[in-house]
């Protein structure tokens, strides 16, 4: 087979595999039938049912508050870590910081969840909203640090040196050069931290307490009872929200990209 056909075909298969299952969940959320796999016509009744599900709505509120709070903390801490790691030269604790940034990215979530929980128990903190926020901020700040760090090391460092040579004090070079250049990555880091927090089930299950049930915890307990069209509907809304955020960010990134190409 010619290579001209092979490439596009591989891409088509790859994307069909990645998106097919998600699209089917979305399609079946509009199914009239309560039997999930028998198509019985178009309906939005499951979306209406969602609005009546108070437990589910509560968990959405908890998840969103946790995600905004923890992502804000994670963005500040992760950006600071990235700035420290992007500097040339060694400093005390550099390899410690670097190891602590990269380890949580790959460590199994059950280990992280257990570790966070044991800390909160040792500190005697009541588990609930704030323990989830602290745990989420800790593991998502590592993702923010990696994203921002990648941006910081990819731009031309002579820009900062030029600013300093022209007499700008370091803090000013930071505000006028480093910060604008890293801004898209900081926004991307925040969005990543936000979605990771919104999505986390395992860690939240370990560190949560009574009254703080997140959306994934609620979805999980429903999924364990069986597949329902209502879950399809929640999933569709969640996927649509993430899709919109991603599209918005891609548009933002394109504009930033053009701007930095013009200046760069």
């Amino acid at each position: 087979m010619s290579r001209r056909v092979l490439g596009p075909m591989t891409l088509a298969f790859g994307f069909a595999f990645l998106y097919g299952p998600i699209l089917l969940v979305m399609l079946y959320s509009f199914n009239e039938s309560k039997l999930v796999t028998v198509w019985a016509g178009f309906s939005t009744r499951w979306y209406a049912a969602l609005l009546q599900n108070q437990q589910l709505l509560d968990s959405v509120r908890v998840s969103l508050t946790v995600a905004v709070t923890s992502a804000t903390l994670a963005t500040i801490l992760g950006t600071l870590a990235a700035l420290a790691l992007a500097e040339r030269g060694r400093f005390l604790g550099r390899s410690l910081l670097s190891a602590m940034i990269y380890a949580p990215l790959v460590l199994p979530e059950v280990i992280l969840g257990l570790a966070f929980l044991l800390l909160f128990v040792a500190l005697g903190v009541d588990r609930g909203f704030w323990t989830i926020v602290l745990a989420h901020a800790t593991f998502t700040m590592c993702f923010v640090a990696v994203v921002v760090h990648a941006r910081l090391v990819s731009f031309d460092r002579s820009l900062i040196e030029a600013a300093v040579d022209l007499g700008a004090p370091p803090w000013r070079a930071f505000l006028r050069v480093t910060l604008p250049i890293s801004a898209p990555a900081v926004v991307a880091g925040f969005l990543l931290a936000f979605t990771l927090s919104l999505d986390d089930f395992v860690i939240a299950s370990f560190v949560s307490g009574p009254g703080a049930t997140t959306l994934p915890m609620r979805i999980y307990s429903q999924v364990r009872l069986g597949v329902t069209p209502e879950i399809n509907a929640v999933s569709t809304l969640l996927l649509a929200a993430v899709g919109l955020a991603l599209a918005g960010f891609a548009a933002l990134g394109a504009r930033f990209g053009e701007a930095s190409e013009r200046t760069g």
């Binding site: 299952p21 089917l24 969940v25 999505d199 999933s235």
Partner: peptide
Amino acid sequence: MLAVAPFWTSFLIRVYAWIL
């Protein structure tokens, strides 16, 4: 971006899709 985008969507829902 398209290949990595699913990583941004809910892990739980992607696993759930395979039950379906």
